[in-house]
């Protein structure tokens, strides 16, 4: 029986190349209870290596992206046929049950693009569930690893430097730590304001999205030096920190709230003393000391690689030099109090 299924799968993959009809995404696997053992169970991709999205699975782009050790990320959105996501008044996307967000992580290694892991967020009747799948060395299948995994990786970073890291695939709970809003799993990236212009056009023209009300000014691309410094810094904090540092997030008890909407300077960190930072404080008094990045706890923790000090707590084993430089400049230009 299993052999037969495997044979069919191979046939399907074979046909894909010759543009014959392929098996569609398996909606029942997305919505059923349980945790599928293999990424291929979903049918999100038509090839075994996870590069060719199936019908209805669309590649999308964000304006500003979370830093994950310089990994390349490939994001896909799937909405069940005939349904659409709705952008509500706050610009959050409300996805119908049966939707999935799929994100593959990889590096160019020895001149070849290789995938390390693919994370899926599945919208089921009882809420979202986040699951991590790890690719095999042959790049032919990704297998569920609820407990996460560490993978040694050597790659060349954007500055040309060779890096050896212990890449951490998050465990299922760590997925939720970041994707948590009032204790429930929620998507982070796909907000109207953070979807690229092209992505919004694509979703609208594919009838995958309905925009309920007004437009939401897009979040700046923090890498875009032509944008105002303030916008870039706030965009960086929003996508890299605010998934935990918000009033309903994993770091709600810190009182440090870094969302794009936050208006209170003290909750953004300006003149804010630490609460539970421990040695994360680095001996400094304030999260942000205006005009003085070198004495700001925020910079100390962004630039640290030490567990218990480094922020974000998961998903980073390297310093994001470009991000740190951006925030450092932002703090340096703040008026001293």
């Amino acid at each position: 029986m299993r052999t037969l299924i495997a044979a069919i799968a191979i046939c399907v993959a074979g046909f894909a190349v010759s543009a014959a009809p392929t098996a569609p995404v398996v909606d029942a696997v997305i919505t059923a209870k349980g945790m599928p053992k293999k990424l291929s169970d979903f049918g999100f991709f038509t090839d075994a290596a996870g590069w060719k999205p199936n019908k209805g699975v669309e590649l999308y782009q964000l304006n500003s992206a979370l830093f994950t050790d310089y990994a390349e990320k490939y994001r896909y959105i799937y909405v069940p046929a005939g349904q659409r996501a709705v952008a509500d008044g706050d610009g959050l996307l409300q996805f119908p049950v049966g939707s999935a967000l799929i994100k593959s992580f990889g590096y160019e290694i020895d001149g070849k693009d290789r995938l390390l892991e693919t994370r899926v967020l599945l919208h089921r009747a009882d809420g979202w569930i986040a699951l991590p799948y790890v690719w095999n060395a042959e790049q032919t299948e990704a297998t569920l690893k609820v407990a996460g995994k560490r993978i040694p990786v050597r790659f060349t970073d954007p500055s040309g430097e060779s890096r050896d890291i212990s890449y951490a695939v998050p465990n299922k709970n760590q997925c939720k730590e970041c994707h948590s809003l009032s204790g429930e799993v929620m998507p982070i990236g796909p907000k109207s304001r953070n979807l690229s212009h092209d992505t919004l056009d694509m979703l609208l023209s594919n009838a995958m999205l309905e925009q309920k009300s007004g437009s939401h000014p897009p979040v700046a691309d923090y890498d875009d030096a032509a944008m105002p410094l303030e916008s870039r810094a706030r965009a960086y904090l929003d996508i890299n920190c605010a998934h935990c540092h918000n009033r309903q997030g994993s770091a709600s008890n810190s009182g440090l709230f870094l969302t794009y909407e936050e208006e209170s300077p003290v909750h953004l960190g300006v003149g804010k003393r630490p609460v539970a930072a421990g040695r994360g404080s680095g001996g400094f008094e304030f999260a942000i000391a205006p005009g003085n990045p070198d004495e700001s706890i925020m910079m100390h923790r962004l630039k640290s690689l030490e567990s218990g000090v480094a922020m974000p707590e998961v998903g980073r084993s390297l310093v994001h030099a470009e991000g740190a430089a951006l925030l450092s400049k932002w703090i340096a230009e703040m008026e001293k109090e």
Binding site: A168, N173, Q174, E177, S180, G308, E313, V314
Partner: peptide, 11 residues
């Protein structure tokens, strides 16, 4: 320990 902000986290 290489990562995370605590030994054991309960949520």
């Amino acid at each position: 320990q290489l990562g995370a902000g605590e030994g054991l986290l309960v949520t």
